[in-house]
Structures are given as structure tokens and as C-alpha cells.
Amino acid sequence: MTASVIECLELQLLEVEMMYSMFPNKGEFCLEDANALRRVKSYLKNPTGPLPPRIGFVVMVTDYQGDVELQVGFPHNYPNVKLQLFGRSYYLDRKQQLLLNQDLTAYISTFDAGELCVCAAVQWLRDNSGPYFRKSKLFTEPVAKVKIVKVMFHRMWIYSHQICRPELRKRIWDCAKRLSLTGFFLTGKPGIICVEGKKEQCEEFWHTIRYPNWKHISCKHAETVQVEGNGDELRIFQTFEELQFESHGNFRHDYHMDLGKFLEYLKQHKSEHIFQMLFGIESKSSGR
């Protein structure tokens, strides 16, 4: 029981960390008890005595038609048990608020035990809250005006000591495709991943592949630019692909990659400067 609770609390801290990353502005993410995180961390260092207080927080999910306060309370055994969420909005009448929460609960119930789901719940509200606002008796059609849509375009460069197992490669591929990200992953030793697209999709990718059991992985560099439109003009990769640059020997036996070939690939995509960030060594330029 204790071991299970400890694992759950560790995952809860990781999800809170992700919330802070996704909602950095004041008022967007608020803990119900600021001491809860400190007491959970203290318990994990010395897991004796009574359990720490449960972590609870509110996330403000913004839609141009209205805002939804998503109230979250972590049971000690989450994510091994289902999570109870509740969305509240001054822009929704009682009926539409009830329907929204029923549909949100139905969506969350599709997640398996052990899966973190708050990030997915936030994205579901962003994608699906509009119809509930429009059907609400409290809804007022916004004044027509030209709205300039801005997005945060993001690119992440991720390093791992290796990417070899077929199931891991499939997980990376499927996640990037599902989130409409472009970039690549370099199979073998070392393993390199680059993803680019909307910031929230990149962060969801990072969250999905990193947790809960990939230990030797780190984001070496990240780039964020706020742009009008969808940011597609900033992409340096047109698709998402798997790369294999075999060194000597058979890839199936030694897995080591030819970093010279990888550097040439980066040069072709005007990303040679990343080489030193990933490996801590300078690439040889043509001028030397």
C-alpha cells in the first residue's frame, strides 16, 4: 500500500510541475493549499506517519467565449484511481454546466488506471467548451471585431542515452503524429528527439513520453516564439520521421549512431548550432 501511494504522490508532483509550465501567468493556476506540496515532498523523503494533505488546485481554462475554472483534487492513490474534476463558469447556466461536467467525466473515464489525465482534461475543455457557452441562457454573443489569433510556436531538442526498444520507438512515433508535430527522432545510441509545433502540443508530447518510467532523458534546449496564425512558416521540418545513421557494424547489434552523418542532417535543416548543445562539443565548420 505504502509503495503504491509513494509512486502515486511522485506522479502527482510531476503533473503539478507540468501545470506550472503550461500556466505560468498569475491567476491561471492556483493551489488550494500552498503548504500541500511542501508536506508531500517531505513525506516522500521520510514516508512514515500519517499521509500528507491531498493536493488540490484550480486551473483557469480560457476560451474566447468564456472561462472555465477547473477544480481538481488528487486522491492519495491517483492516478491508480479515477480523478474527480469539476468545471465551473459564470458564463454557463445550471443545465449547460451540468452537461459539460457530465461529458468531461465521461471523457476522463476512458483513461486507464495509472494514466495522468489533468493535461488531457484541460485540452478537452479548450476544444469542446464552446457549444456549452453558446447554448447557455447566460451567453452573450461577443461584439464582432477582427481578432488576431496568436499561438506560441515551440521547438524542443531532447537527448536520451539510447532509443532502441521497438515499443518505445512506436510510442514516440504515435504521440508525435497524434499531436501533429514535425521533427524527427534518432534511433540508437545516443537517442535524439526534436519536435516542433504549438507549445501545448509539444509539452503534452514531452509529458507523455517522459513519464512515468523514462529516467535517462532530458530536454537540452527549447525555443518559443509567439506568432500570428498557426506558425507553420517557422517549421524547419516538414514531417516527423525516424532517423538511423549507423556507425560501424550492424545496427541491430551495436546501436551506435554516426554523429558525423547526424551533423550533416542538422546542417541540411540549418540547425548545426544545436550539435554543441546536445553533445557539449563543437562541430567543425567549413571555415576551419
Rank of each mutant, 00 (worst) to 15 (best):
H256S: 12
D103R: 03
D127V: 09
K177V: 10
K147R: 05
E32I: 03
D93R: 01
N230D: 14
Y107R: 06
F29R: 06
L9I: 06
V225H: 15
A113Q: 13
E115W: 07
Y132F: 14
Q268C: 13
D33L: 11
G197P: 03
M277S: 05
G87T: 02
A176T: 03
R169H: 03
V149I: 14
T208I: 11
M277D: 10
D93T: 01
H273S: 12
N25A: 09
K150I: 00
R54Y: 02
W173N: 11
I217T: 05
A120H: 14
H207G: 02
A176G: 04
F57V: 04
Q97F: 02
I55P: 02
L278M: 13
G229I: 07
W206V: 03
H256E: 11
A3V: 04
N46G: 00
V122R: 00
W206P: 00
Q268L: 13
P142H: 05
G287K: 08
L37V: 13
F23Y: 11
N128T: 02
L259G: 05
V40D: 01
Q71C: 14
R39Q: 13
L104P: 00
Q97H: 04
Y91W: 10
Q102E: 15
Y64Q: 09
E203V: 00
P52C: 09
P190Y: 02
V118E: 02
P131G: 03
R134W: 14
T140C: 09
K26S: 09
Q162E: 13
P131F: 07
L9S: 01
F133G: 00
I192F: 05
R171N: 06
P79A: 03
Q12P: 11
I217N: 00
F184L: 08
K45A: 10
S180T: 07
L116E: 15
V227W: 11
E17Y: 06
A144V: 05
Q12G: 05
F153M: 11
L14P: 00
H76R: 03
T182Y: 04
A120W: 12
T182P: 00
S283Q: 09
N77E: 14
R134D: 12
L11F: 08
M22L: 14
E282F: 12
G27C: 11
F237Q: 06
R288K: 14
